[in-house]
Amino acid sequence: MISLQNVSKYYPAGFGKTYVLRNITLDINEGEFVSIMGPSGSGKSTLLHILGMLEEPSEGEYLFFDQPVQKLSEKRRTELHRNYIGFVFQAYHLIDELTVYENIETPLLYKGMSSSERKSRVAELLDRFNMVAKKDLFPSQLSGGQQQLVGIARAVASQPKVIFADEPTGNLHSDHAKEIMDLFKKLNKEDGVTIVQVTHSEVNAEYGNRILRLKDGWLESFQVPTLERE
């Protein structure tokens, strides 16, 4: 479903350019759970942003469901965000002025869903994530782990085909982190959602079935799909 061909990203710096990503060629199939690893500044987040169509590559070609992303109009790209892509962030990035319920509802609003549809969808998610009791609380009243749960619920609300997660457990204790990773695993397994995560932690990376290692903008190696599937 995702295919990068010789994708590079650079920024102008002085008279030359600073490369963040170099010649990335990569395919991700539907249903995969991919972990991107690498030291700070290796271009992990930039790669994720390109995959999530938040940034555009400087060179190369990106096909999303066989459509060339570079040629899509702004409107079409927004359509993809609404219906195919979900995001989870390290800093949760919930809207402080909205309750848990309203935060989860936000992507559905932009999707143009009817009020009753939205209600049942959000109720279902709250139920599934065990957050019914907290639906009227504001983000500042929740713990980090709970906030990230809301973040994930928001990401899956519009039933995306793929979720991009940027260090989803970076700000969490290991107990909470495990909870969140299990949840991703479950989403991948049971709902068939493709997941691409950026992580620092080998442990968390192991949840995926493939690990991509980045160093100085180069894609180092492929981790052969492991056999430790349960």
């Binding site: 927004t78 359509e79 609404r82 219906n83 402080d96 936000t106 992507p107 928001r154």
Partner: peptide, 16 residues
């Protein structure tokens, strides 16, 4: 700014 970012990745277009 952050709110704008979140809403945009949730599928909001500029006029919204």
């Amino acid at each position: 700014a952050r709110e704008v970012g979140i809403r945009k990745v949730s599928g909001a277009v500029r006029w919204q």
